[in-house]
Every structure is written in C-alpha cells, then in structure tokens.
C-alpha cells in the first residue's frame, strides 16, 4: 500500500495541472499577505493627504488650534509634541488599523483558507479526472486489480499533498504576519499567536478534506467536467434551497456558515422568525450560533457520503 501511495504521489507531482493549481493557491495566499501588510501599514500625514486630500490638512490645522476637539487633552504641550500628538490622532481617525492577529483570523486568514480550499479541490478533481479522461485507469488496474487499494492510495496521495501544501502555506502566512507585527512593535497577546497557528492546522485539515472531496466526487462521476458541472449545479440548487427554506433556515445546511464555524470557531446568524413564531416574548434571543463541532459534523457527513458512494461505484462498475 505504501508503494502504491508513493506511486500516486509521483503521478500527482508529474501532473502539471494539479501542481499549477497548488502553486496558484500559494500565490493567492501571498497576494492576500501583501494586501494585509500594506493595508495595515503605518501612514504619515503626507500619505493620508495623498489618499484623502485637503480634509486631512484642514483637520490637522484645526487640531493644532483646538487640540481638545481632536482628543489631545493635554493643552500644555510644546509645539513639536503637539504636532506629533495631532498627527497620531489624525492617523487614528483616517489611517489604517494596526495589524491585529485576532482580527486577521476572522478576516484575511479565512480568505486564505477559502482560496486554498478552492484551488486544492480543483487539484483533487483534475488528478482523478485525468485518469478517466485518458483511459489510463484501465491500464493501472491491469497492474493492481485490487480496486479498493487503488482508490485508497490515490485518496491518500491527494489528501496528504493537499494537507501538506495548505499547512505549509498557512504556517508561512501566520508566521509572516507575526513577524510583521513584531517588526512594527505592536503588542501581540500570547494567545493570539497560538490561536493563529491553531487556525493554520484546522485550515490545513479542511483543505485536505476538500482535496479528498474533489477526488472522490470525480472518481464517482468519472470526469473533471462532470464534477465541475455538479459543483456549479449544486450552487444553483443552493440558491433554490435558500429560496425555498428562506435565507435564514438555509444557513444550517449551506457550506459557508459551517466553513466559518470550523475555521474561526463559531458562526452567528439571527433567526428573527423563530422569535416571531413563539410570539416574540421579551428577551427572545434570535442569535443562532454554529460551533466548530457543527461544522465538523457537517463536512464529515458530506465527505463520508461522497467517499462511500465513490468507493462503492469504483469497486463495482466496469472500467472503460
């Protein structure tokens, strides 16, 4: 079995489309990283003037004259210190927010996991689709006829590769942000760092699962195009379900909330109808929270159902 997994990993490494998708995932993460670093950078008064024009200078001049109006409470400051204090106040109001690892975990960090998920789901899909599209699956089975093994070895290869790529990218992402925040002398709470790395690991687990999902679904449908069609189609079905159930009721069964719950830890939505239904007693709490455990169960069920169907059909059906 180990030998077969090794063979499949080589097959994956030689498969250009799969590698390109992995590289694209990493590049997307790099782009988000650069964007995050830039949009949290410190800005001088001149930068802000460049961005917003004379409102900034007007406000600055006003601060020099009436410091209290702009939150500079000590009006005994000497001129140069007053200038610095006003600059800081203007930057607080107009400038970028500081880099905060906690905020990024719910923002750019989720975006990176989303993009990696999409890229590697496609990588898993093209990996399996290639074997079917070229007909080389039959050839492989002439060398290893135990189909469950073949299926399992390919799954192991894509899951390992997808998880490893995602883990490497996410660890690099958070290490990079941590380094930037330290370089800027920003306060970084201890737990923010461990929480960031925890999210990296969870994200990698999710991406590994998505890679396996793309693979298993394509082994079931036997074509890349079929899988892409089904995913696109289920997007449309999602819209229909949302229409039928109502946006709020659909939250529980749609991927997005579960995705966020899994990666971030919780996802909150508001079910006001539920409160109306019970007569809207005072104090009715409309907030519904999906926890990480909800997201885990959701994705585990999807994976197991698709995986079981995929393996079963691969074992039984004629191979072209």
């Amino acid at each position: 079995m180990k030998r077969l997994v090794g063979v499949e990993l080589t097959r994956l490494r030689w498969r250009r489309a799969a590698v390109v998708l992995m590289v694209l995932g990493a590049l997307a993460a790099a782009a988000i990283f650069i964007g995050t670093v830039v949009t949290t950078s410190e800005q001088s008064l001149d930068d802000l003037v460049d961005d917003y024009g004379s409102v900034v200078t007007d406000e600055y001049d006003d601060c020099l004259e009436h410091p209290r109006r702009h939150g500079v409470l000590d009006d005994t400051l000497p001129d140069d210190e007053l200038a610095t204090a006003c600059e800081r106040q203007i930057a607080l109001g107009w400038g970028h927010d500081d880099l905060d690892l906690g905020e990024q975990r719910e923002g750019s960090g989720v975006a990176v996991v989303v993009l990696l998920t999409l890229a590697l789901l496609l990588a898993g899909t093209t990996f399996a689709g290639h074997d079917w599209n070229t007909g080389s699956m039959a050839n492989q089975l002439l060398f290893e006829p135990r189909r469950a093994r073949v299926w399992g070895a390919k799954l192991a290869a894509v899951v390992v590769a997808g998880g490893a790529v995602a883990l490497a990218v996410l660890l690099a992402y958070w290490t990079g942000l941590y380094a930037v925040a330290s370089g800027r002398d920003l306060p970084i709470p201890e737990h923010a760092v461990s929480a960031a790395y925890k999210q990296a690991v969870l994200g990698a687990v999710l991406v590994a699962g998505a890679t396996g999902f793309g693979y298993a679904l394509t082994m079931l449908l036997r074509s890349t195009v079929g899988t892409l069609g089904l995913l696109f189609g289920s997007g449309l079905v999602g819209v229909v379900i949302t229409q039928a159930l109502g946006f709020v009721e659909a939250e529980r069964v749609m991927p997005w909330g579960n995705f966020t719950a899994f990666v971030v830890g919780s996802y909150r939505y508001y079910d006001y109808d539920g409160c109306f239904a019970t007569g809207y007693e005072a104090g009715c709490d409309a907030a519904v929270v999906l926890h990480r455990s909800d997201g885990s169960v959701y994705f585990l069920v999807v994976l197991l159902v698709v995986g079981a169907l995929s393996l079963l059909s691969f074992r039984r059906r004629d191979v072209p």
């Binding site: 030998r3 077969l4 090794g6 063979v7 080589t10 097959r11 030689w14 498969r15 250009r16 290639h130 070229t134 007909g135 080389s136 039959a138 050839n139 492989q140 002439l142 060398f143 290893e144």
Partner: peptide
Amino acid sequence: AVVESPKFSPSFTGRQNLLLLARSV
C-alpha cells in the same frame, strides 16, 4: 495485457508512464 488501443497519460513521457506502472508492482 493490452486492451483495445493502448492508453497512457498523454503529458507524461513514455518512460514516465512505464516507471509508474513498474513501481506500482
């Protein structure tokens, strides 16, 4: 066995295709 027209991965070299099969057994 060779069944119908032979089918291998078109973007791999002939040698790569054989290597993968050889290693799998």
